[in-house]
Simulated scan of single mutants.
Amino acid sequence: MAQSTPYPANAADSRAGALTFLEVENLVKAYPTADGSDFVVLDGINLSVSENEYVSVIGHSGCGKSTLLKIVAGLDRATSGSVRLQGSEIRKPGSERMMVFQHYSLLPWLTVRENIRLAVDEVLEKASRAEKNEIVTQHLAMVNLNAAADKYPDEISGGMKQRVGIARALAIRPKMLLMDEPFGALDALTRGKLQKQVLDIWESQRQAVMMITHDVDEAIYMSDRIVLMTNGPAANIGEILQVPFPHPRNRQAMRSSPEYFELRNHILNFLDRYFTQDE
Rank of each mutant, 00 (worst) to 15 (best):
D180K: 15
R163A: 03
P174V: 09
L189V: 13
D180W: 04
Q162P: 05
P153K: 00
D217L: 08
A169I: 09
L178F: 10
E181N: 03
G184A: 15
L177Q: 14
K196H: 10
S204H: 08
I166V: 14
M160N: 01
Q205E: 15
A188T: 12
S223F: 02
V216T: 04
R191M: 00
V216A: 02
K151T: 06
G158T: 13
R225P: 04
K196Q: 15
F183D: 01
T213C: 12
M222T: 15
S223V: 09
H214N: 06
I166W: 01
K161C: 13
F183W: 12
P182K: 06
I201F: 12
Y152W: 12
V198A: 14
A171P: 07
R225S: 09
K193W: 06
G184H: 01
R163V: 03
I226M: 09
R163E: 04
W202Q: 10
D215I: 09
D224V: 14
L194W: 13
Q195A: 13
D180A: 06
M176R: 11
L177T: 13
M222C: 11
L228Q: 12
E203S: 10
A219G: 11
K151G: 00
T190E: 03
L170M: 07
I212D: 01
S157V: 12
K175Y: 04
D217Y: 11
F183Y: 13
G159C: 08
G165E: 09
M222F: 08
G184F: 15
P182W: 11
E181I: 03
R168M: 03
R206F: 05
I226T: 01
M211Y: 04
Y152G: 03
G159V: 12
T190W: 05
Q162H: 07
A208N: 02
M160T: 10
W202G: 05
L170W: 11
I220Y: 06
G165N: 04
Y221S: 02
D180S: 07
M210L: 15
D215P: 11
A167S: 13
R191I: 05
V216C: 07
D217H: 07
L186I: 01
L228I: 11
K161G: 01
V164W: 02
M211D: 00
R191S: 11
L189F: 11
T213P: 01
E155C: 01
Q197A: 14
A169S: 13
V198D: 04
I172S: 07
M179F: 07
P153A: 00
K193M: 14
A188H: 02
L199T: 15
E181K: 05
